[in-house]
């Protein structure tokens, strides 16, 4: 899932300066399950913002709503009917959601209430960890199912570096385990450690964001165009 967390109240308060009335839009998908932008969080944040702006002497009226999937046009288009009364939309979706709202409503300012962090998974109750960077050319086949692109701060493809601490902790942050320590351990467990003696060649980063905004086109899913002869 996409994992996000809320921006500090102060930052959002700054964004809201000069606005009279704002519509907060949460999202019921990824950010709801990571407790950043679902219905509950929308309620909490809006309550906090109403009080914070009131105490600052610039009260902002904030209405709340949640859509099931903020990144898809079909789920957000109905909001357009009401937007005239609002100075801005405050999105509690991920960065994709914010942009889908902006794409759908060219005349309304859209503000982000969340910082979108990563694609990851919960590794325990109340803990989420990054697992994928969407590099566009998956190498998990060579690394025992553990991704060094997202889990090693140096994105080593032939690790580990010399900075692995005792017990396999990363020197950059002792809270995070060394990805390569775990890759070796896992491949050893699978009896395929010798594969790691091969030098993994330089990665083709053109499939990553280095190649510009990425796009997938599926002809089979597109709306068929009616040819003249097809009638």
């Amino acid at each position: 899932m996409i994992v996000a967390d809320q921006k500090p109240i102060e930052d959002i308060k700054q964004m809201l300066r000069g606005k009279r009335k704002v519509l907060a839009v949460g999202c019921g998908t990824c950010v709801a399950v990571c407790f950043a932008g679902g219905k509950r969080e929308v309620g909490l944040l809006c309550s906090a913002l109403r009080m914070a702006t009131d105490l600052a002497g610039e009260p902002v009226e904030i209405d709340e709503t949640v859509v099931q999937r903020e990144c898809e046009q079909e789920y957000i288009e109905h909001l357009g009917e009401r937007l005239d009364e609002y100075d801005a939309i405050l999105s509690l979706g991920c960065g994709v959601g914010v942009q889908s709202l902006a794409d759908s409503f060219p005349n309304t300012r859209v503000l982000p209430a969340l910082n979108t962090k990563f694609m990851g998974a919960p590794s325990g109750q109340g803990v989420w960890e990054e697992r994928c960077q969407g590099c566009g050319n998956c190498l998990l086949e060579y690394t025992g199912g553990i991704c060094p692109i997202s889990r090693c701060p140096k994105q080593l493809m032939n690790g580990p570096c010399g900075g692995t601490d005792q017990g396999g902790r990363c020197e950059v942050d002792p809270e995070i385990p060394c990805a390569w320590y775990n890759i070796w351990a896992r491949m050893d467990n699978l009896n395929i450690q010798d594969e790691l003696m091969e030098i993994h060649p330089p990665k083709d980063w053109s499939t990553s964001r280095d190649g510009g905004m990425r796009r997938i086109v599926r002809k089979d899913l597109q709306k068929p165009e009616l040819d003249e002869g097809d009638s």
């Binding site: 701060p153 140096k154 994105q155 080593l156 493809m157 032939n158 690790g159 570096c161 030098i199 993994h200 060649p201 330089p202 990665k203 980063w205």
Partner: peptide, 12 residues
């Protein structure tokens, strides 16, 4: 940070 290559790939 860049890390386009790692040190092994750099040597190679």
């Amino acid at each position: 940070n860049v890390h386009d290559l790692d040190s092994m790939q750099l040597m190679r």
